[in-house]
Simulated assay, not measured.
Amino acid sequence: MLRNNAKLLTFILCFLILQTACSQNKPGKVKPAAERFSVYQPILKDKKIALVANQASLVGSDHLVDFLLSKKMNLTKIFSPEHGFRGNADAGEKVKDGIDPKTNLPIVSLYGKHKKPYPDDFKDVDMVVFDLQDVGVRFYTYLSTLHYMMEACTENKISLLVLDRPNPNAHYIDGPVLESDCKSFVGLHPVPIVYGMTIGEYALMINGEKWLKNGIQCQLTVIPCENWSRNSRYELSVKPSPNLPNYQSIQLYPSLCFFEGTVVSAGRGTDFPFQIYGHPKMREANFEFKPRSISGASRNPKFKGQICRGEDLRSINIDSFRLKKQLDLSFLLKAYSELKDSTEFFNPFFEKLAGTKLLRQQIIQGESENQIRKSWRENLDQFKLIRKKYLLYPENE
């Protein structure tokens, strides 16, 4: 009996030791930089602050604007990116300046003709705080907003503080690297479509590689996230933009956004944007949808009111898809194969999204996905060497 009790006590003791060790090794809760107020509060103290923010700029359940005001920080202005401060404007829709009704702070839109702040925009500003949720894709325009804000801050001798946030697509690097003659607001820098960096790391790269006008460099500080790694499955608590409503859409977005440069619908004007695709003339499909006008997301989508046939990707295992760590070109190649003889498949926007004129040519010539990928390899390897210099978080194992 004593021997059995001793064995039982030994087992319990070993179990408790193992449980304690596991709890000690368990990573803590991921904290975006905005939640690390004690780290950046000394930097903001006694400063007149302008904030670049939108609906995803949260501290827990509170908006960063409200949080900073509650901490007696001196906010003087809000800058808003594409989709506006509250994130309810369509993609490409011009957003006007205004006043935030809750705080009476002036809002300056940085989308439309006014993409770069004017000198007058920095009146009563000592420092700009940048806090936008990126999704890790080159044609997501928040990167261009970051670029122009860095440039304007430098020219006007204003310091910039970037509050970093996790990138839900940071686990891989893929796609053609942007060529200089394909620059636009959906791609300003020589990076691949998926670049595997947080927006804070990206800001360091813009600065370090002297990509701002005339090689100027911003007075830049980046506050990192806490307890986040590139392999993390990080789900956002709020939409980063109107047509990325969930994790499925964010993971599929880098592959499906090519369709924005073609005749094919990527699901705008439905409840499932960037989770489905189709066209009225696609016949080899057993899924149908009809785009409609949706205020704040897509008021005038492709094929509004028409029945489109295509593919429903909502049911695919997104974690298995994620593990492939690459763009999926099969959707684009399949749609082109079916529609090439009945439509003008590409439009001029395709090159801006792809960042190269070559991809369209490769698809028309019938190259396979593997052949297309091989053409990316050398430039991707060169980019990875550049990227490595600016990483704030460990590389994937």
Rank of each mutant, 00 (worst) to 15 (best):
D271A: 11
E179R: 08
P280V: 05
L163S: 06
L188K: 13
I363N: 05
M197L: 13
P119Y: 07
F346G: 03
L160I: 02
L9I: 11
T154L: 08
A50K: 01
P245M: 01
D62G: 00
R377A: 11
L178M: 14
Y195P: 02
E260L: 02
L256N: 05
F321T: 01
F346N: 04
Q362N: 06
E288P: 00
W376H: 06
G60P: 10
T270G: 05
N207Q: 12
P224I: 05
Y336L: 10
E395Q: 14
L146Q: 14
K324W: 00
A266W: 02
G305W: 06
V263I: 12
E288N: 09
N231C: 06
H171S: 09
Y172E: 01
L244D: 06
I250V: 15
I78Y: 02
Q306Y: 06
G187Y: 08
Y247I: 01
L333E: 11
G196Q: 10
R165K: 09
K340H: 07
Y277G: 05
N379E: 15
T141Y: 07
S237V: 06
K116M: 14
N74K: 15
L18E: 12
K29G: 00
P280G: 04
W228M: 03
I173R: 02
L327F: 09
R3G: 00
I158H: 13
E288S: 15
Y390P: 01
L146W: 03
L358T: 09
Q365W: 02
P245A: 01
A6W: 03
F289I: 05
I173Y: 07
H189E: 14
K113T: 09
P81I: 06
D100L: 05
P301I: 02
N379I: 00
G296V: 09
G267R: 08
Q306F: 08
I223M: 07
T262Q: 02
G112L: 12
L333G: 11
R86S: 08
F185A: 03
Y172S: 01
I372M: 12
E397I: 04
E284H: 15
D174S: 03
K357Q: 12
I173F: 07
K115A: 06
T103S: 13
E395G: 08
F331L: 01
V264L: 11
L68Q: 07
K29M: 04
R268A: 09
C225W: 10
K77G: 00
F258Y: 15
Q248P: 00
G261R: 07
S315V: 08
L44Y: 04
L332A: 09
D381A: 06
Q326T: 06
N286W: 00
I193T: 15
S237P: 00
V128Y: 03
K290T: 15
E82M: 09
P242G: 04
L178G: 07
V125H: 09
